[in-house]
């Protein structure tokens, strides 16, 4: 394996995941939240592909491609929802959507 050993990739992936999680937890605009989810998905992809390289089999890459397809589908639906929200002039702020208050 050229370049860094696997531990570097693990750490990098973790940091990306944590960043994405921070974005989900801290931002109020649903678009930004969706982008942060993308970051998290990509961090998982990175780790998958790194492990695939480590073990010499393509299974990780197959998995990563499936993840990409699913992420794309999810983005389609999420953006569709956001557009619908925008059309109804609902304010794009997740803190305003509080009807599930207990």
């Amino acid at each position: 394996m050229h370049g860094p050993e696997i531990q570097w990739y693990v750490v990098l992936s973790g940091m990306l995941f944590a960043t994405g999680a921070l974005g989900v937890m801290l931002r109020r605009n649903p678009l930004i939240i969706l982008l942060s989810v993308e970051i998290m998905l990509n961090s998982a992809n990175l780790l998958l592909i790194a492990m695939s390289r480590l073990r010499g089999g393509e299974d990780g890459q197959i998995f990563a491609i499936s993840v990409m397809a699913v992420a794309a589908s999810e983005v389609v639906v999420g953006l569709g929802l956001i557009v619908a929200m925008g059309r109804r002039n609902v304010e794009l702020d997740v803190d305003k959507l509080r009807t599930l208050r207990g």
């Binding site: 937890m25 109020r28 997740v94 803190d95 959507l97 599930l100 207990g102």
Partner: peptide
């Protein structure tokens, strides 16, 4: 306990994490 159910998505996500 109902204080935890404030309806905010972000706090639920925080709880998940």
């Amino acid at each position: 306990l109902s204080v935890a159910q404030n309806g905010l998505v972000r706090s639920y996500v925080l709880a998940l994490a």
